[in-house]
């Protein structure tokens, strides 16, 4: 396990001066990812906060080769780059012993929704790459529209909380599970507050032969209506309430990598975010109860599967 001192001694490949919001959860994730690769990295980002915020012409925050993808095709772009690398190696244009890692990054909109078919295809074709979804639970870059990652009851600009409907009416898609169903060698959920867990998983993910996927919760002060300084704590609470369990599936075996000492009620996570404010009104308490029940069941399901084969 790397220590923070060791990680800090490595080059900073993601510069300051990007235009992501104050208190954004994405950069700490990216900074750790780039340090855990152990080899040079080539990356692409789907359209989204990360892509827009880091590449406003003529500025780039990236100190690695990085290419902008459209919303739907980050996984296809990285497939092409990885294929070119293999072809160049075969032809001797890249030395046979030169190792390069490939990273695709997308938000939940670019991954759960718009980029899903490209991701599914790339996973099935078995390209050697890591796809990371930074899940902030809505289309934050375009103005907080609901996505299939948005939690039940969350207020967004397209699922506003009003008298008729108290926020989003549907449960979120469990994308990590969907990805696991592709039978890839490595898939995991992580959170930026637990840097050790995230870094270890990223190292594994970069080093497996074949596709790897990480779904990482990324607090968003803008869309969660939370305080910028609370971002990391918001990620911590998402994990301690078991809304966002930390686990991995390595070669088909599921492992829960973190069990909260004391599992907190989901209300603890909800109450620091304005997007759930309306759920604390008496008439909406059923949504809070429903969420709690479903989270408890999901957590129990994971605990039951801990150490076992997923299929």
């Amino acid at each position: 396990m790397a220590t923070l001192k060791e990680l800090a001694a490595k080059d900073e490949l993601f510069s300051g001066g990007h235009r992501l919001c104050s208190g954004c959860g994405i950069p700490p994730i990216v900074r750790l990812l780039l340090r855990s690769a152990g080899s040079p990295v080539v990356a692409t980002s789907a359209t989204g906060c990360l892509e827009v915020g880091t590449s406003i012409y003529p500025y780039t925050a990236w100190r690695i080769p990085w290419i902008h993808s459209a919303f739907e095709n980050a996984a296809a772009t990285i497939s092409g780059i990885e294929s070119a690398y293999r072809a160049f190696k075969k032809k001797g244009r890249i030395p046979a012993d030169k190792e390069i890692k490939f990273l695709a990054l997308g938000g939940d909109g670019g991954t759960y929704d718009i980029g899903f078919q490209a991701l599914s295809g790339a996973l099935e074709r078995g390209h050697n790459f890591l796809y990371v979804c930074y899940d902030n639970g809505a289309y934050m870059n375009t103005g907080i529209q609901r996505s299939s990652a948005t939690p039940l009851g969350s207020a967004t600009t397209t699922s506003p909380a009003g008298a008729k409907r108290p926020g989003k009416q549907e449960w979120r898609k469990d994308l990590t599970r969907v990805v696991v169903a592709h039978n890839i060698p490595y898939a995991a959920q992580a959170s930026p507050h637990n840097w050790r867990d995230l870094e270890g998983k990223a190292r594994k993910a970069f080093n497996v032969a074949g596709p790897a996927f990480m779904n990482i919760i990324s607090p968003c002060p803008l869309g969660w209506y939370s305080k910028p300084e609370d971002s990391i704590n918001a990620a911590r609470l998402a994990v301690d309430t078991c809304y966002w369990p930390l686990y991995e599936v390595e070669n088909g075996i599921l492992r829960v990598t973190y069990r909260p000492k004391e599992k907190k009620p989901i209300a603890d996570w909800f109450k620091i975010q304005g997007r759930f404010k309306h759920l604390f009104k008496p008439e909406n308490s059923h949504l809070l109860d429903e969420t709690q029940k479903r989270i408890d069941a999901e957590w129990q399901r994971l605990l039951d599967m801990d150490g076992k084969a997923v299929f």
């Binding site: 001066g17 012409y57 500025y59 780039t60």
Partner: peptide, 23 residues
């Protein structure tokens, strides 16, 4: 004078952009 593909040739050029004024 934009290079083909909108390539930014200087890695990490955002370092030269100040965001300290947001504070």
């Amino acid at each position: 004078d934009v290079p083909p593909g909108g390539v930014i040739r200087e890695a990490g050029s955002a370092h030269g952009y100040s965001t300290g004024g947001w504070r």
